[in-house]
């Protein structure tokens, strides 16, 4: 099996890796780069726990090959905080108790960060539909939606 050589950027760090062409970007992040923040909840793009952005676009890393990452800029949950300063979304998720078990949290944070960058003033319905591909089994989404709306409101006030 010939391995594919890939150079990419992950959370602004340059990375280089070899991977089997069948390996997904998620496999590469977790098993080759040690970034286990993105989770595999389904492996079929149905749960969103593996959400990352690729060149700014929100995707499921389980539905992209590692080999496809060549030259791409990838952002994961590990890159959301700015050094020791949490992103406002991260703070609000803790404050609102928007997580119970926390397995879906990385994917939801990546997804909502992408949403607020695109749409700083989403309605509740827009947030719900944007997050429809991020399954959470613990919370019933209520506190997640509240945390996102509250963050959006704070960010708008700050800007």
């Amino acid at each position: 099996m010939s391995m594919v050589h890939v150079t990419a950027t992950v959370n602004d760090d340059e990375v280089e890796f070899l991977c089997d062409p069948r390996e997904t970007l998620l496999d590469v992040l977790r098993d080759r780069l040690g970034l286990t923040g993105a989770k595999e909840g389904c492996g079929t793009g149905d749960c969103g726990a593996c959400s990352v952005t690729v060149d700014g676009r929100l995707v499921c890393s389980c539905l992209m090959l590692g080999a496809e990452a060549e030259g791409k800029s990838i952002a994961t949950v590990e890159g959301i905080a700015d050094g020791e300063n949490l992103h406002p979304l991260q703070e609000k998720f803790i404050e609102h108790a928007a997580l119970q078990c926390g397995i879906c949290t990385p994917g939801i944070l990546v997804a909502t960060k992408a949403l607020l960058e695109k749409n700083p003033d989403p309605t509740e319905t827009e947030v719900r539909y944007w997050l429809a591909g991020n399954l959470c089994r613990c919370t019933g989404y209520d506190k997640i939606i509240r945390a996102v709306m509250d963050t959006a409101s704070d960010l708008r006030k700050a800007s």
């Binding site: 923040g37 989770k39 997580l99 926390g102 990385p106």
Partner: peptide
């Protein structure tokens, strides 16, 4: 009262270690 959960930071940063991690 409603303080921040102690494992909150780990779980919003991707540091928390789950079964497959």
């Amino acid at each position: 009262t409603r303080p921040d959960r102690p494992d909150g930071m780990d779980k919003v940063t991707g540091r928390a270690k789950f079964g497959a991690d």
